[in-house]
Design a protein around this nucleic acid. Structure first.
Lengths: 185, 185
DNA sequence: TCGACTTGAGACATGAATGTCTCATGTGAG
DNA sequence: CTCACATGAGACATTCATGTCTCAAGTCGA
């Protein structure tokens, strides 16, 4: 009946609402028996790990899609800026699906996911650093800080929408302009 | 031996490192028997709740200290801007002690804490809105979004320091300039 | 139709954390 | 010194999620 993919999708959806849902709850959410859930994922960690891997897949796909590495070495200000903008939009789209992953403890403790996260962040930081070198971004801030700032704004965006303070459709512009231009008049 | 205050302080310190520490661990961290911990706090929720209340106290104290309400109604651009800057510095100092509270699930589910959080956020948003009205902050962004952005940057700051990407002493300037001026060159 | 396979329901054992309770010990006030 | 009191250690009972297992029912293909 329910394929592994459908189960994962249901779990993903549900975890975005209740990040601490038990296996029983996740099974119910997927319309599947608890035993069946365990047939697909030997443990809860296993399931979370799989979802974590997929969120990293999305992160990587987003960076690949905009050609982060190539653009970073292009030294073309316009391409770099366009790349940054597109990347942010993709991140926001990704966080619609994987918002829970932004702050989930399990995902930030698995060593392999951590290692991968580091590698991906490194690619992102390379783009940010390149943006600084060609004058797209201020170069008086550590590139790694810029990475953290992006992340922080994603968390802010997720929460703002969750709490109904901002409509989803406004998010892209809101986050981008806040990140790039700040909030000063 | 260990007073209630000392226990709370130890728990606070420890939860900043391991937000999911058990009562047994927290008791050990406070150098106190598990039974004694329970004599002070009937349940883990009780302890967390107390810490949550204190983090709200700090938030409130910070806003009181800079006179948020009075400044917000002053319509004096310079005072408002100075107030914003000072407030951000205080928030960062607060998050040194209560960083874990920024994202802890227990604290964001207790109804009374939530209600209080709403009230405090409202005062903060009033200041942000005032800043917009007198031309200190851009008025093309929802004031509530500005509040979320502040929060997101606090999370970013906490993580950046945790991961060693930014020295603590640089945080104040980093966060402030990122928030106000953004990252564009 | 038959048979191999999958599924959901549920029983079961386990482990972790919680909260309660008792008791021997140690300390401080009088 | 002595007594009242708080403490730490630890035994217990309970709860909850987990992971395993079995079994009856259903499905799909031969």
């Amino acid at each position: 009946m329910a394929t592994r993919e459908e189960i994962l999708a249901a779990a993903q959806r549900h975890l975005n609402v209740d990040p601490r849902a038990s296996m029983a709850v996740l099974a119910a959410a997927a319309g599947v028996g608890r035993a069946t859930l365990h047939r697909h994922f030997s443990s809860r960690d296993d399931l979370l790990h799989e979802l974590g891997a997929r969120s990293h897949d999305r992160w990587e796909e987003s960076m690949d899609a905009v050609g982060v590495d190539e653009v970073a070495t292009s030294r073309d200000p316009e391409r770099i800026e366009a790349c940054l903008r597109e990347l942010m939009g993709r991140y926001l789209a990704d966080s619609d699906d994987f918002g829970f992953a932004l702050t989930d403890a399990v995902l930030t403790s698995a060593p392999d996911l951590l290692a991968r996260s580091d590698r991906l962040a490194e690619r992102e930081v390379a783009l940010l650093a390149a943006a600084q070198e060609v004058g797209v971004l201020r170069d008086d801030l550590p590139a790694r800080w810029l990475g953290h700032a992006v992340y922080g704004l994603l968390v802010a965006a997720r929460d703002a929408v969750r709490e109904g303070d901002v409509p989803r459709r406004d998010l892209d512009d809101l986050v981008l302009t806040t990140f790039l231009k700040g909030t000063s008049a």
